[in-house]
């Protein structure tokens, strides 16, 4: 069923990518505790299979856009962990030159379009990115991520209507981690099967096991092929789980430790590792090598961020307008 076949290489790629994202976020959490990273910081730990399954089912020229839990998507697309870490430090070498912070990663070269802080605000933007691809006659798609909280926004409903009407090549993905900050899905709506919101627009929609990259890949692949054929959008409710709080300042009193442990037992990195071991696709030396390589990458990213310069104050008035010499009011 999958037009992009899942092979041994796919598993090895998934393992390495997910471990990199996991270690990156663990380090980000530590650095937040040390106040090296400030502001709001939302970690992706537990949700890695969603981006892994997306990457194996899409191509380089497909674009991604998401909300503020946005560290994993651009790194998966090819952004350097150095630029990601430096951005969270607020350094000039960050992916948004220190002007974005944790919630506003951007990487145009790798077709990652942010990093958006208003819940649901990125939904029409993703459809718009797809609109441009269709307008320009490419076969590229946009994958537009959102959290389960975002589906209650008006922006989703307006965008779904037009995306179906115009058959835009966009895949809307809810990374349903069960909680909109501290409020469970069941406490925000009568409709807890989020994917069913697609039915009202006759948009193909389905629930997907977000702890399993194979399930994500297959669902995504089908959606991507549909979009490339000009048949329009798909709405995937990818059921995942974040092990950590909503942000770094979340005491998590709304859920039990048992619930968290239950999901950790299905950890996608462990599941993929077990498959690789079972199929004997790699030996322990390979796993050790991957772990060492990632440790080096993360150490290097921290060193890079630490040693990078702060943005010069003269940067304050740059990048606000594309026009040069805009006459800012400076009294």
């Amino acid at each position: 069923m999958s037009s992009v076949a899942i092979t041994k290489e796919t598993y090895l790629y998934w393992y390495e990518l997910m471990l990199l994202l996991r270690r990156f976020e663990e380090k980000a959490g530590q650095l937040y505790g040390q106040q090296k990273i400030r502001g709001f910081c939302h970690l992706y730990i537990g949700q890695e299979a969603v981006i892994a399954g997306t990457m194996s089912a899409t191509k380089k020229d497909d674009s991604l856009i998401t909300a503020y839990r946005d560290h994993a998507h651009p790194i998966a697309k090819g952004m350097s962990p150095n630029a990601a870490m430096a951005e969270m430090y607020g350094k000039a070498t960050g992916c948004s030159k220190g002007k974005g912070g944790s919630m506003h990663f951007f990487d145009k070269e790798n077709k990652f379009y942010g990093g958006h802080g208003i819940v649901g605000g990125q939904i029409p933007l993703g459809a718009g990115l797809a609109f441009a691809e269709k307008y320009l006659g490419t076969d590229n798609v946009n994958v537009c991520y959102m959290g389960d909280g975002a589906v209650r926004q008006g922006s989703l409903n307006e965008t779904f209507n037009m995306a179906m009407l115009w058959k835009l090549p966009v895949i809307f993905v809810v990374e349903n981690n069960g909680y909109a900050m501290g409020t469970s899905v069941a406490r925000t709506s009568n409709t807890t099967d989020i994917y069913k919101l697609g039915l009202g627009y006759e948009m193909p929609c389905a629930p997907v096991d977000g702890m399993d990259p194979v399930a994500v890949h297959n669902a995504m692949d089908e959606a991507v092929q549909r979009a490339r054929r000009g048949e329009g959008p798909t709405f995937l409710e990818i059921r995942t789980y974040r092990y950590k709080g909503h942000s770094m300042s979340d005491p998590q009193k709304y859920r039990t430790k048992e619930e968290v442990e239950e999901y950790k037992a299905k950890d996608p990195i462990e599941v993929v590792k077990a498959k690789i071991e079972k199929e004997k696709w790699a030996d322990q030396a390979w796993f050790d090598e991957v772990a060492a390589k990632i440790k080096n990458q993360i150490d290097e990213a921290v060193k890079f961020a630490e040693e990078s310069p702060w943005p010069d104050p003269s940067e304050l008035f740059t990048d606000v307008y594309a026009q040069e010499n805009y006459p800012f009011i400076k009294d």
Partner: peptide, 10 residues
């Protein structure tokens, strides 16, 4: 809201 956002994305 929707079409303004779609246009911005475009």
């Amino acid at each position: 809201l929707g079409f303004a956002g779609i246009a911005i994305g475009a």
